[in-house]
Write a protein that binds this DNA or RNA. Structure first.
Lengths: 173, 173
DNA sequence: AATAATTGTTATTCACCATATCAAATACCG
DNA sequence: CGGTATTTGATATGGTGAATAACAATTATT
């Protein structure tokens, strides 16, 4: 169960490929009936999640950060000095898969591994100065573009209610 | 952007692997601070979606249907006689990837392809009798186990509000 | 001291996602 | 009508995510 990952792609391009706009004067076939599909929570959940990730990627594109990478940076900022297992587990990333992910962040000098003094098996993780700076910029982009757009669509109260229910499902379901 | 797919796996097993329960008398390290992560809608959205899919797979396991396959069957029931392109597009599945998916359903005799009389390029899709029967059973399982559990967790009103907001995001965001 | 468990890592497998390309069939257009 | 473009289902391929097994180094257990 790896959580909150997404490839850095041109989201608009992918979206266009799927929508397959009827290419102008095309034979317009009648739209399909979604039927009970529109009552399936999982279906809406997945489609909404794809849309939100797509917008996240677009908003934070200047910094080339995926949702998963952003979540790692956020977690490292709040919890410096933890090891790979702890960070990976909290995010629902399997430790083997977290290695390559960290390699990517470290090669961009956004975070650093250091051998722990107490336990020489584990690597202590922390943000670099550049990592802190990039994260700060990312936060601003996310807040001013991404989350702001969600707020605009739903309204603050609805957005809060939505977040609350999603969190509840994630925790208790 | 393929929507509503999920592998048929033992969800509980995967979940256990991630949670990594502290194996009894293990050195209990203090839990990490999620920090601003808990305010990120996309993060909760993704984690909730994984939980919901996991439960769906569990509930409908006797019939060996993934969310994606279930959505195809639902769509075929409501829209018999459509071709592969139409069904795939509506679900956000790319046509090349839809071929193998249909092969799977057809090899289990859940649906059938037939060459169209009007346009001999396209395949007209429809549920088989077995497909209708399996879908009927699946619907009952989903309603009585899966959606019922969500209703119990959130309450009917909240569940409806959640669905409404997710649909809005999926459509308008 | 011997054995078991943990940490980071590699390798590998599988599902999903996306693009390019193709042959057959159809639509379009001069 | 005939030639070109488009559409449909299909194949091949590459990329990414997710999951498991296994390993060496280190630490914990007993």
């Amino acid at each position: 169960m790896t959580v909150y990952k997404a490839a850095v792609v041109d989201a608009a391009k992918a979206s266009r490929a799927v929508r397959k706009e009827p290419a102008e004067g095309a034979l317009e076939t009648s739209p399909l009936q979604l039927g009970e599909l529109s009552e399936l929570l999982g279906y809406s959940l997945k489609r909404a999640q794809l849309k939100v990730f797509e917008d996240f990627l677009h908003c934070v594109a200047p910094l080339q950060l995926t949702p998963a990478q952003f979540s790692v940076l956020l977690l490292l900022e709040k919890n410096p000095g933890r090891n790979q297992t702890e960070i990976a587990n909290t995010l629902g990333i399997l430790r083997p898969n977290f290695v390559a992910m960290l390699d990517g962040l470290e090669s961009r000098d956004l975070c650093a591994r250091a051998r722990s003094a107490n336990d020489r098996r584990s690597h202590v993780l922390m943000l670099t100065d550049k990592g802190k700076a990039v994260l700060a910029r990312a936060k601003k982009l996310v807040a001013s573009k991404h989350e702001a757009r969600l707020n605009e669509l739903l309204g603050p109260a609805n957005r809060a209610a939505l977040l609350s229910m999603l969190t509840k499902i994630a925790r208790e379901f």
